[in-house]
Amino acid sequence: MSEINTSIAQEPDPVVEPDPRLVVPEREFTVKARSQGELIRRRFFQHKLAVISMIILGLVILLAFVGAALWKYSYSTPMPLTNRGRPTLDLIPWLDGDGLGLGNHPFGQDQIGRDYFALTMRGAQRSLIIAFVAGLLATVIGTIVGALAGFYRGWVDNVLMRFVDVALTIPLLLVAAVLGRRTQSLPILKDVFGANSIYLLALTIGLASWLSISRVVRGEFLSLREKEYVEAARALGTPNSRIIRRHLLPNAAGSIIVNATLLVSAAILIETALSYLGLGVRGSDWSLGKQVSEYQQAFKTRPWLFWYPGIFIIIIALTINFIGDGLRDAFDPKQTRVRQ
């Protein structure tokens, strides 16, 4: 120890340089300061697949909401069948047909003559709403529960996490069946949501899928709350609610957002599964899942009735998954972009 000290002491004093903050740099833009948000955005936009997915998802949303509103046919009016309702969409001119063109019924017609493009767009619209509402709801509930459990620990944590343990064993189908049936007999639910509301379905899916995210958030909070800056904030007398909002939530935002995207894409698939078992969208409304399950028998005679909604489900789920992957890379560059 003493040797080191003396050696340091013997060194000549360094030349005092002027404070770098006072020196005007010769070229201003050699190094640019970037905020954390900017860095994340830049990393996200470097992930090509995620960016392409975002564009495609944007187009699908635009098509489902704006395109369907501008389209000449409504999804519920039957029309006389032309050419057995075959799709008139023609994207590959060198194979058959008259070349690139939309035609009258680009996705064809179903067996009673409804325009299938309008129907699919209606389904996509509903499915997107269900998925996003369910995802948002699950994220909010899961984050609140996880944050409370992870931050307060002790009995709060015990109670909440044992509840999550119990809830994890309850099958989603059961919750969906009970909630779906009970709407008819419980007037409050009926008044709030309407008899066959898709929002009720979204609520069901959301209520059944927040469990995983609550565990993730709890884990993040358990480690974040021990960090020095939280201790510093506490020493300054910051109230708990402010510590959670200002210090913990922003730091846990990465994993929350990534998990939220995964929840949205899972919700699309859950909706499909529920529709197949007759527990999904009811009544005269449509969703992509309901379309696929209604028309699975038509596969041999009218395959397009089965293909188009299925392809839209896959496009939506796939693009959301890729966006989630891009976000993961952006928030946590260590995890995937390792050089060997």
Binding site: Q296, F306, I313, I314, A317, L318
Partner: peptide, 18 residues
């Protein structure tokens, strides 16, 4: 893998059946 993540089980099952 991402494609498999995004496939609805029963859509796939019907296709496999066909």
């Amino acid at each position: 893998a991402f494609l498999c993540f995004s496939l609805p089980v029963f859509w796939l099952a019907v296709l496999l059946k066909e």
